[in-house]
């Protein structure tokens, strides 16, 4: 171990043999080199396997798949939109889907669409989370999940043709139901 005075000790990293020094160079012993080499091998195997056969649940060994999917130039860009009502504002209005508003972000909500399809009443927990995160605001008494589609034509969006499809709704008065798929 080195000291603040610049003196160099003879042993580094519990080496099996004393580390040697020359001109202020701290060397590693055989043990120090061996375990470090093993770490590199383990990381290479782990990250390699994660990239080849793993999925997001393998994090931190998950594949680096940002922007990795192929998108058809003529498909549609679909995003989830969240709409809510309150006792004083009974008309549906859009609110951002992010962690500071509902404790989840948009991609997380999109990824749990199967859960919402099975149990649409889980939309009520978004109102609960919103009440916890923004207690100064009026509590939501209705939550509606909407899919917004913008078609792509030759790789460019046709914003004029954007459409909304309600997917599921929960209201404090009428309960929850699935509206679309």
């Amino acid at each position: 171990m080195a000291t603040t005075s610049g003196r160099v000790d003879e042993r580094v990293d519990g080496a099996a043999r004393p580390s040697t020094t020359s001109r202020g160079v701290l060397r590693l012993g055989a043990l120090g080199r061996a375990w470090r080499t093993a770490v590199v091998v383990v990381l290479a195997v782990g990250f390699g396997a994660g990239s080849l056969v793993g999925d997001d649940h393998w994090w931190p060994l998950s594949p680096w798949r940002m922007f990795s999917t192929s998108s058809s130039p003529s498909g549609a860009v679909r995003v989830f939109v969240l709409e809510v009502t309150t006792p004083t504002e009974p008309a549906w209005r859009e609110v951002p889907i992010n962690l500071g508003v509902v404790g989840l972000n948009r991609a997380e909500l999109e990824g749990r669409w199967p859960l919402v399809q099975e149990q649409p009443e889980v939309l009520a927990t978004l109102a609960d989370a919103h009440a916890r995160l923004q207690p100064e605001q009026e509590r939501w008494d209705g939550v509606r999940l909407v899919r917004r589609s913008t078609p792509l034509v030759g790789g460019s969006p046709d914003r004029e043709a954007t459409s909304d499809q309600p997917l599921a709704v929960w209201t404090a008065r009428d309960g929850a139901q699935v509206l679309g798929s």
Binding site: F47, G48, S51, L52, P63, W64, R65, M66, F67, S68, T69, S70, S71, S72, P73, G75, L152, G155, S156, P157
Partner: peptide
């Protein structure tokens, strides 16, 4: 590994897709 993921999930056609669009 990001390139590997593109081949795995997007296929070789990723380069000609509308992903960045």
């Amino acid at each position: 590994l990001a390139a590997v993921a593109k081949v795995r999930f997007g296929g070789w056609e990723w380069v000609s897709s509308a992903t960045i669009a």
